[in-house]
Design a protein around this nucleic acid. Sequence first.
DNA 1: AAAGCCTTCAACCGCAGGTTG
DNA 2: CCAACCTGCGGTTGAAGGCTT
Length: 233
Amino acid sequence: MGRQPCCDKLGVKRGPWTAEEDNKLINFILTNGGHCCWRAVPKLAGLLRCGKSCRLRWTNYLRPDLKRGLLSETEETMVIDLHAKLGNRWSKIASKLPGRTDNEIKNHWNTHIKKKLIKMGIDPVTHRPIGQKVANPDVVSATNSSSTVSVESNLEPERQANTGPPESSTDARSQDQLVDWLLEDELPEIDDSWQNFAINSDDFSNEWLLDYQGIGILDSQLDGCFLESFSEA
DNA sequence: AAAGCCTTCAACCGCAGGTTG
DNA sequence: CCAACCTGCGGTTGAAGGCTT
């Protein structure tokens, strides 16, 4: 593709992860109660990968607190609403959807939601009816949630009529304050059972979690390490 | 049946921002 | 204060599987 590899080119494996590599990474993180620094992980775990690749694999796929499968209708609606307010700040959006990663949401947005909105005659960038001009497109996402065509606009009339964002300003700090203000806002609960989710060996009913057993991870390890590492989150 | 096109999503990249010495 | 290092983020790519012709 013409791009330079991010890490030491020689001896670093790229591409899809094998079950064996997953196993090594999981085992390392389990036995160490988390990761120390990602750059050291591949070496210590015996992986021929760069730290970045390990971090990505862990956060986007192997983390035990991940929800798998397609986004529910409710989650989708939340994503649309949050996107109208935050724009492409996928990590911020993901932080409001427990068990979902920014990558997952970004992919879902690009492959499903975008098309859905276009079909509905809504511009996925401005969240306005397609063709409608925007005075200042740069600030649309973060500032005009009350005038965007929110798919769930009927869910939040009170919120929109609320006290309003902090003093508007163009500097970065104020933008961050705005984002914080938006994120502080109460959002509809998605799924009570998930909200109350706690890592516990009894909860390992999902197929992918069962796979851990298939690659040699013991329940006792899960109990000890995951509880310690993730319940505190 | 098979070739070509389309869709999906895991994984990669470069950059920005935060942390540390 | 500054440079080096590390992590997280968002955009992009490409392999694989599904679909259409």
